[in-house]
Design a protein around this nucleic acid. Structure first.
Lengths: 166, 166
DNA sequence: GTCTATAATCCGATAGAC
DNA sequence: GTCTATCGGATTATAGAC
């Protein structure tokens, strides 16, 4: 709280005009982050599964790299949430995972993807993509577009995207 | 320190007979964890790149799932290390990544793998595999062997393992 | 709505008896 | 080597003046 107050430029007591306590502030932060994530991702069920998967890859990397601070906080402070608040954030996280799994399932159904287990693939893909955040730097060897292209290829391969299907 | 003392069954002051301060204790913990990781992984450069990659997948998942607590601490407390200690642990982490990248490079050289960027693939594979730790439960839907098999397939695909090559 | 001041608590670390 | 006791500092949160 003292660090936040210093950053904002007020005294600690003044913060309590905007939040009842630290737990609520943290929860609101994480909830906003997850809600923005859910709202920002717009899937197009009418498009091909491959196109939808590529869009997910591009979206996930872009969303998380421009919100590095929020992502770090969300992962580091998740365990400091009270049980009820923790359960709420976890539910939002699972709902986001379901968005990707829906794409994978549709792809399997149409034969565009070759996956033995969509749930495992969902978790693996998200872990792989989120990992970009831990090492990507704007002044690094590769641009974000190049990195995204590489991950799009790896995800496509791991999903068994058929080479001819769209 | 108070939590550790309670868990061990001694008073707080007694802990300082075993560590000069909390920072040293944390650093020793992380350093031991990383050193064990490096020592436990035994690569066989004479084997085929595909076999070596499969072994890495199996090893990484097995090592991390049986040390869940140490992995959680290592990731959560990493930022609480003083700069010099942080740099030391990061160097160990990079050394471990290099072990995998060596396999990928050899595979590309022999034509067993099809990878445009071994560094990116290294980071992606490790992130994917480490992610297992966040959701795997012994009493879950799949056994650790089944999960490992699925990840081995996904990693092989993302590495572009040629279907005929060994 | 922000400030100063402070309460209540927790933390890492130390001192000294045994 | 462990204990009791405590120091010094940091933390969240509150109270009351302005």
């Amino acid at each position: 709280m003292r660090a936040i107050a210093t950053e904002v430029g007020v005294q600690v007591g003044a913060l309590y005009n905007y939040t009842p306590d630290k737990q609520s502030l943290l929860f609101d932060l994480l909830q906003s982050h997850m809600s923005e994530l859910m709202d920002a991702f717009v899937d197009n069920p009418a498009a091909s599964p491959t196109a939808r998967l590529h869009h997910f890859v591009q979206f996930h990397i872009a969303f998380h790299t421009v919100r590095r601070d929020a992502v770090v906080i969300s992962s580091m402070e998740l365990r400091n949430l009270e049980p009820q608040n923790f359960a709420c954030i976890e539910a939002l996280r699972r709902a986001y995972e379901d968005r990707l799994e829906a794409i994978l399932r549709d792809g399997v159904a149409t034969g565009a993807f070759d996956l033995p287990d969509t749930k495992i693939s969902t978790l693996a893909i998200i872990a792989m993509l989120t990992g970009v955040n831990t090492w990507f730097r704007d002044d690094g060897r590769l641009s974000l577009e190049e990195v995204t292209a590489r991950y799009r290829d790896m995800v496509s391969r791991s999903a068994g995207v058929s080479e001819r299907a769209g």
